[in-house]
Design a protein around this nucleic acid. Sequence first.
DNA 1: CTGAAAGCGCTTACAG
DNA 2: CTGAAAGCGCTTACAG
Lengths: 329, 329
Amino acid sequence: MQDVAKRAGVTKQTVSNVLSGRVPVRPITAARVREAIAELGYVPNLVARSLATGSSRTVGMFVPTVSTAFYAGLVERVEDVLEEHGYRLLLCTTRRDGERARRHLAGLTSRSVDALLIAGDEGLTDHLSLLSRTRFPVVLCAWETRAPARFPVVTIDYEHGGYLAGRHLRSLGHEQVTVLASPAHGPRVSGFRRAFAEDGLDVPDSAVYLAPEPSFRGGMSAAEEAMRAHPSSTALFATHDVLASGALEAARGMRRSVPGDLSVVAHDDTPDGVLAPPALTSVALPSREMAREAIRLLLREIEGAQPADPQRRLLLPRLIARDSTSSLA
Amino acid sequence: MQDVAKRAGVTKQTVSNVLSGRVPVRPITAARVREAIAELGYVPNLVARSLATGSSRTVGMFVPTVSTAFYAGLVERVEDVLEEHGYRLLLCTTRRDGERARRHLAGLTSRSVDALLIAGDEGLTDHLSLLSRTRFPVVLCAWETRAPARFPVVTIDYEHGGYLAGRHLRSLGHEQVTVLASPAHGPRVSGFRRAFAEDGLDVPDSAVYLAPEPSFRGGMSAAEEAMRAHPSSTALFATHDVLASGALEAARGMRRSVPGDLSVVAHDDTPDGVLAPPALTSVALPSREMAREAIRLLLREIEGAQPADPQRRLLLPRLIARDSTSSLA
DNA sequence: CTGAAAGCGCTTACAG
DNA sequence: CTGAAAGCGCTTACAG
């Protein structure tokens, strides 16, 4: 920068002013400075700028994994929004491992990020307390379970997602149904039940099958079990697309055509759900809006320095009807 | 830091020494310093440290996307290795968009990263020239096409991967085959052909079907076309798992049982390949080793400051036989 | 609109 | 083993 200034015949403050545009510089001088910058191939040292300004223009993001369509998509959405605002993304995947999360959190307790976005509550049960004395804004998103009251959270109304799935099946006339759920998807199941309860119908615990993890194989074996135990049920709700894909495979194996013999409604609407026909009817999650809203909160806190009130914003999912559901004959 | 020093009754240099461990400090003094740190809840400012040391302990990673099993896995592997060495990960997804890559590259021309790992050559055809006057080490990985000679590259012997797939089918007795390939997968196809050529067999251009992008739907329609045009072929090589999954679906639709009527061998061995039965025979890529080796090169350059010679290291894939291939009756 | 000064919070030689 | 100084490369008031 000193070199640039010398070459342009000004002081480095003027160079800084030209770069930042904060203080007006005479056009002729500015042009000389720009020329010097180009000739010398000068690039500003962002670390020095960060130290001087106190802002690194970097946002940290915690996410359970990127090996899942939903989270991979969310990371890319967040990156998009961040880029629009000139921020960079420091990524930490926790692998649903509290110890890993703890280590990463410790590493960020410095000034290396301006803010932290924590997406997904999986595996973070205990370690959020580490954020108690953090100096930067924290926002939570994609949070299905109890949200710690201390932070703003932008999430999806998962209960409503389950409700939409339930209403869809009810509107098609289904009465006897089974549910495939991941342990963390309690709210989706509650919403689903609420939809049936509205019509005075009960979805008993015995009709809810837990898949230990949201995998294709898990969905497949849980669905087989469910269909065997409830042969008269005409529809199935899977709280995750991969579970539903597994269920599709199970139905094929058991010679039950979908949607003819069995309607299947899924949740999350990831690309995984539109692989093999029939295309899954699924509850779509507004992850782009979630990313945008979460980053908006984060940036407002960073720039305004106003402590955003710990509020909970719920975004509404919507159901996309495709080929895996049909009305009861 | 000044406050810590005062509280411990030393100067901040001593605090720095305790923290870094570079200069020995008397145990009693060190203990007092640590106590002061704990009482004050002091956390060092990493930005200031970066400015002073010239190292941010952050590595940038370019990747076409994270919405793909292979790249998502690679990102997590890289993160693992980086963490072992106390480095953080700044992630940039290019979405196979040269303009996007250009913008990100421009943003990194500062001192904010110590090195850059570029994974995957998709969409980076022209914009690598931007790296010409970069000040930090650059390593390329997962590079299938022509590697720019200026940078070290750690990649997989994709040609050998295709060869393994071909040898596998040959060892099972298959002679008439078709190929489903992505445009970027030329080397895999070459290797596959070489395996057949060894036995004096030709895989003609007319037997190679291009899927514009590596998607399930693309694989499905390309496979349908291939099976219709080559009804007597007994095996199919798909250069990507999702293409192969699509082919499986196409075979099911056309009532050809796999592997009974048609053997299918895939490439990449991602979890996508073990979804619906039959589990895919596939060529597994050593992405963990690739991540480890690439980061090793990068760190050696960062720390040793020795310009690693632009060399090309090839890691060997291996074939994993599962249920989608069988010997010709 | 432009120049001289101080400071962001560390680390790295360099004397004692 | 511990203290005083200079410097990393910027930005931000503050005079002219």
